[in-house]
Computed example of a mutant assay.
Amino acid sequence: MSRVGGGAVAAGVAATVALFAAGCGGGSDQAAAKESCNGKTVSIGITKSASDAPFYVAQDKGYFKKQGLTAKFVPFDSAAKMIAPLGSGQLDVGAGAPSAGFYNAVGRGVKLKIVADKGSMPKGYGYMPLMVRKDLYDSGKVKSIADLKGLKVAEPAQATATSNTAAVLLASGGLSYGDVKHEFIGFAEQPTAFMNKAIDAALITEPSATVAEQRGVAVRLGDPPAFYDNQQLAVVLYGGKFAAEKSELGKCVMTAYLEGARDYVSALSDGKVSGKNADEIVGIVTKATGLKPELYRTIVANYVNPDGVVNTESLRRDYDFFKQQGWLEGNPPAVDDLVDSSFAKAAAEKLGAFAKAGS
């Protein structure tokens, strides 16, 4: 079931900070929240990708400042490289694509918590389509998923959530995960791999999917939400120490993040950043990422739940797939032990019900 939907963006600086106390009932709680958040600096890992939009919006529109915080963005080449500094306490907040490597790291003692949605694919927001090389499609060699048997299909890395996306899509064509040859190539490099005929098909995220399409080297063959609705592809992570010892600070960060997420979702329409206030969001995100505005307006957008709700059922489904493939080491913690929804729930309560702008 799609999670699109929700309630109204919060108002006023004083209300957002003070509501932590009001919801819990007392001036002492309010003082504690201010003491925990005001004047504090929080380090947040980013990859300068479009899926970091809620963080960019929260920063640009002053939502972190509204919580009394200074947000220090720390760039990483990939979300996977955030895991170690999050676990060691060198980084407070980050993001990740739940993978076998993620669960194995936690099993080895890296302390992490999944605290909010950062990228999911409900209906209309399939921002990681299955694409096939255009010459194969035009020639009639590949017209359906079943035709991929024995061909080279690219994923960004082995044993990620994308691997299960591939497995589900292949199953819809009567194929198993092992019926194709898997190539592991980063999303940004996949359009070139198509052009060089190094791959036959790929699960490729935006904006690389649209780039491949515009270059005339690949066409869309499968839309993941049609086969695996609302898959949880990216999540917000708190370092274990940050989550355990700085709970009020974590709520302040989450409140700012969800305000940014709600502005972002309000700008979405029909799977693209083309709704109310789209110009503002396009300006903020393209300035932060370097994407061309015309390209950003064209791509299929990633969805973010306005209340930060994580699709734990999807996480469990992918986890089970990793286990079936033999990719999990030892006995890593169960998904439910890693998801801490308390920060998002508290922030959503303080912000109130979400009502999409213009609705």
Rank of each mutant, 00 (worst) to 15 (best):
A346G: 10
A212F: 06
Q90G: 03
M1L: 03
V235E: 12
Y177G: 01
L169V: 01
A347K: 15
V153H: 06
V273M: 03
L258R: 15
E280S: 13
D336L: 00
D179V: 03
A100K: 09
A22E: 08
V153F: 05
Q232E: 12
F64H: 08
A22L: 10
K141Q: 12
A201W: 01
Y177S: 02
F73A: 03
N277A: 11
W327M: 13
N230T: 04
V309Y: 07
V153A: 09
E259Q: 15
Y264E: 00
I83S: 15
A58P: 09
A58C: 13
G271K: 06
D60M: 04
V300T: 14
G250C: 04
Y238H: 13
Y56I: 00
P207I: 00
A234V: 04
V9D: 10
T286I: 08
V300A: 07
Q59F: 01
S172C: 14
P156H: 15
Y103N: 02
R262M: 08
S341T: 05
Q190D: 09
G358K: 07
P85N: 08
I299D: 00
V335I: 13
V300Y: 04
F184T: 05
K323Y: 00
Q158E: 05
V153N: 10
Y137Q: 04
E189A: 11
F187I: 02
Y319G: 11
G330K: 15
A188D: 04
A212T: 07
A344T: 10
V57H: 05
F64S: 08
A209S: 14
T165P: 10
Y103T: 03
G26P: 02
F194P: 03
D307Y: 10
N305I: 00
